[in-house]
């Protein structure tokens, strides 16, 4: 079952607001929400939980935005995200790929998905992000808005 053209594009920011640059996904999506075109629904979450499968299945596209602790030498990366039906990493919380598979298995639809990852420099106990993390958020907001504009333009 496909979500209709009136279905929203879902943007999900994930992270921990008291672990320095781990908050990057949350901050980026809060900024995206203020600037996004019509038809975009934004959610920020501490963890990616199984109940997100339902709104994902009702979306025509989904964009996950998260910090990453590896590939720190690379800039913000925007890449397609594939469904992961292995069940790996789906217990108390899961990854975006697992949630796509869950949406397909439970509700019959997994929309096309992208993952925006922001390199983090430090993940210690602090509510302040590093300069590198903040720069990554700015870049991630710009790239996510570009992606959303493309998706909106491609609407049938």
């Amino acid at each position: 079952m496909q979500a209709g053209s009136a279905a929203p594009i879902l943007v999900i920011g994930c992270g921990n607001a008291i672990r320095e640059d781990d908050a990057a996904g949350l901050c980026a999506v809060e900024a995206v929400e203020a600037l996004a075109p019509a038809g975009v629904q934004c959610l920020v979450r501490h963890q990616l939980l199984p109940e997100l499968a339902e709104p994902i299945s009702q979306s025509r596209a989904v964009v996950f935005v998260d910090a990453r602790a590896d590939r720190l030498d690379q800039p913000v990366i925007v890449e397609p995200l594939a469904s992961d039906p292995t069940g790996a990493g789906l217990g108390h919380f899961g990854g975006g790929g697992s949630l796509l598979a869950l949406a397909e298995a439970l509700y019959g639809h997994a929309p096309p998905a992208w993952l925006v990852t922001i390199p983090g420099a430090s993940f210690g106990f602090n509510t302040e992000m590093t300069d590198a993390g903040r720069a990554g958020v700015h870049e991630a907001v710009r790239r996510t808005l570009e992606l959303l504009a493309e998706l909106a333009a491609a609407q049938p």
Binding site: P50, T86, G87, L90, A101, L102, A105, L106
Partner: peptide, 13 residues
């Protein structure tokens, strides 16, 4: 490999 939530979905969605 299948004794997880996806296996559960197959058995009882």
């Amino acid at each position: 490999a299948s004794r997880n939530v996806f296996g559960l979905i197959k058995a009882n969605p």
